[in-house]
Simulated scan of single mutants.
Amino acid sequence: MRRTKLLWRWRSNPLRRPSDILEARIILMAVLLLLAGGLTAGIATGRAAGDTLREQRQSRMATTAVLVDDAPDRSADAAYRTGDDKVSVTVRWQDRNGSARVGTTRVEPDRPAGTKITVWVDEHGRLTARPPGPVTSVIEAALVATVAAIGWSSLVLCVVYGMHLRLEHRRAQQWEREWAAIDPRWGPRRT
């Protein structure tokens, strides 16, 4: 019974409308697009994200910097808090060419000037965030791939649902036209 209900649009039936056949073909196409497109979108996006994260790990390097000023305590930097316990401070470091560079980074509060810290720089010697580790990169790439696959699937399902609503509207209009043509033949109504 259940199998018959699922495949009723494919059966040869005199009551089957052309819109039923069209809807069955749309559903079949949607299933193929969901499987192939969702998988392709997920894999392609996951690989691109993985490549970007791998490039970040390779292009960023740790270097030693020195605090130029004393790091303020937490209350002095309360207006600029980012949710962590660190404060902004000016640091100096040397880039790959040996040139002195100065920038601002976040460190633990109450550190005196001259304290050595580790900072991350890009290939141009600019301060940057620490690159994600290999495990974090895999997790982030997998999450991006999952979101891409879900996004593609949602798009396909929304289009199919819109087509279904349009076909239902057409079938209702067709039913009303046919009913209006047949109803007068049955004679006057008794109330």
Rank of each mutant, 00 (worst) to 15 (best):
M1E: 11
R2S: 15
K5M: 11
K5L: 14
L7K: 09
L7F: 15
L7M: 15
W8P: 00
W10L: 15
W10Y: 15
N13T: 11
L15A: 12
R17N: 04
P18C: 07
D20M: 07
I21F: 09
L22W: 13
L22H: 04
L22C: 09
E23K: 01
A24E: 04
A24S: 10
A24K: 01
R25K: 07
I26V: 14
I27A: 15
L33W: 01
L34F: 08
L35V: 12
L35E: 02
A36K: 02
A36V: 12
G37E: 02
G38H: 05
G38R: 03
L39S: 10
T40G: 06
T40N: 02
T40K: 01
T40C: 09
I43Y: 13
I43R: 06
I43Q: 05
A44I: 03
G46P: 01
A48W: 00
A48P: 01
G50T: 00
D51N: 09
T52F: 01
L53T: 00
R54D: 08
E55S: 05
E55N: 05
E55I: 03
R57Y: 02
Q58P: 00
Q58W: 00
M61G: 08
A62I: 07
T63A: 08
T63F: 05
A65W: 04
L67Q: 07
V68R: 10
A71H: 02
P72C: 09
D73S: 11
S75F: 12
S75D: 14
D77W: 08
D77C: 08
D77S: 11
A78P: 00
A79T: 10
Y80C: 07
G83D: 09
D85H: 10
K86F: 04
T90A: 12
R92F: 03
Q94N: 08
D95S: 10
N97G: 06
G98V: 07
S99H: 13
A100S: 12
T104I: 14
T104N: 11
T105N: 08
D110G: 04
R111K: 13
A113P: 04
T115A: 14
I117M: 09
I117W: 00
T118S: 15
V119T: 09
V119L: 15
W120A: 10
V121G: 06
D122P: 09
E123D: 15
G125E: 10
G125S: 14
L127A: 13
R130H: 12
R130I: 11
P134Y: 13
P134K: 13
P134V: 13
T136N: 10
V138C: 01
E140W: 03
A141G: 05
V144A: 14
A145Q: 00
T146K: 01
V147N: 02
S154C: 10
S154F: 09
L155Y: 10
L155D: 01
V156Y: 02
L157K: 06
L157T: 07
Y161T: 06
H164V: 05
H164F: 05
R166V: 04
E168F: 06
H169V: 03
R170C: 00
A172S: 12
A172L: 13
Q173R: 11
Q174F: 05
Q174T: 13
Q174V: 04
W175Y: 11
R177M: 03
E178V: 07
A180Y: 00
P184M: 08
P184D: 05
P184H: 07
W186G: 02
W186C: 01
R189I: 00
T191E: 13
